[in-house]
Nucleic acid binder design. Sequence first.
DNA 1: CCTACCGATCGGTAGG
DNA 2: CCTACCGATCGGTAGG
Lengths: 191, 191
Amino acid sequence: MCPITSTRKLEIIEVATNLFKEKGYTGTSVRDISAIIGIEAASLYSHVSGKEEILQGICFDMAHKFLNAQEKVINSGVQDPQKLLHQVISQHVHLITENLSAVAVFWNEWRYMSEPFFSDFVTMQRTYEQHFKDIIITGIAQKAFRPVNATFSTMAILSSLNGIQKWHNYTLSPEEMANAFADLFIQGLKT
Amino acid sequence: MCPITSTRKLEIIEVATNLFKEKGYTGTSVRDISAIIGIEAASLYSHVSGKEEILQGICFDMAHKFLNAQEKVINSGVQDPQKLLHQVISQHVHLITENLSAVAVFWNEWRYMSEPFFSDFVTMQRTYEQHFKDIIITGIAQKAFRPVNATFSTMAILSSLNGIQKWHNYTLSPEEMANAFADLFIQGLKT
DNA sequence: CCTACCGATCGGTAGG
DNA sequence: CCTACCGATCGGTAGG
């Protein structure tokens, strides 16, 4: 949360992000992290209070990035639900492709956070999903979209987008993926 | 692989499935499993050769279920790509809802298997994805679907379906979900 | 950032 | 299926 962070702490978080992605949070030891940096495990504790603080840093940083990008689109004045959906999808895809490792941790390891971080994180997720859902609900009300189940459609779309981190192989650019997703789902939802 | 399995071994796999889902494979100890069953950790080794064998059992059992269900649809004689896609989606959704915990392990913990199991599992996944992709390619050739990127569309659809295990809350029946997914993606792919 | 170390727990084995 | 136990490793602390 504090914007002033030492470069060593940033290095720890970056190394941990890659390890948490590859081996999982519980499968990664603090010694794995310190060995890559080239210091003793005990020395990590000069920079972080514990293993979980690193996980919290990764997860909440991504959560804020997602929510900020989404709010920027929603507050941009765009009214057309199809255009709005296209833009939030595009922002989401770009954030994933620009933060592949952090997103993998964000998506697969967040459940290992203890309270109250766990619940705070869930609340942020729910907020993000709700903003998506609101766009779909508005679109249905304006007859831009079919009368689908908005909750279902939201989860179907977000799950699809989040899958990128599992199969992404760089053959498609972020723009191409964003447009392909938008085409698929907007045509899928259209009246 | 052996069809004759003691009930104790089945119990171990069932308990482990739930624990691996909740706490992850690396976050679950053999003592966690044995404690729930009510035996000593050492006694597990009368039924399984090790912790990983349990994971292998869960993952390959689900992999076979997915491939078998898919082959049954593909060999059923249905030709229309839209109907075929609807049916493989429906089978996939049903398998997920009937095996929520095992699918969560299958999907999130398979990477912890050692070789050659890891590679064998990846091969089965690729085969499954390829069958999906072939349906889309055929559909494009027959002008039933738009000229989309078939690999992308396959991964977009499968990721969306697999997301069920993360958000499923029993408000929709498997049939309702299967139809909602099929509607969304078939309309999304249609010419 | 290091040395030295802690108690707890890990997956697994020997022998019955 | 149990008792008894193994060496390895875990996250973390004390003290400098």
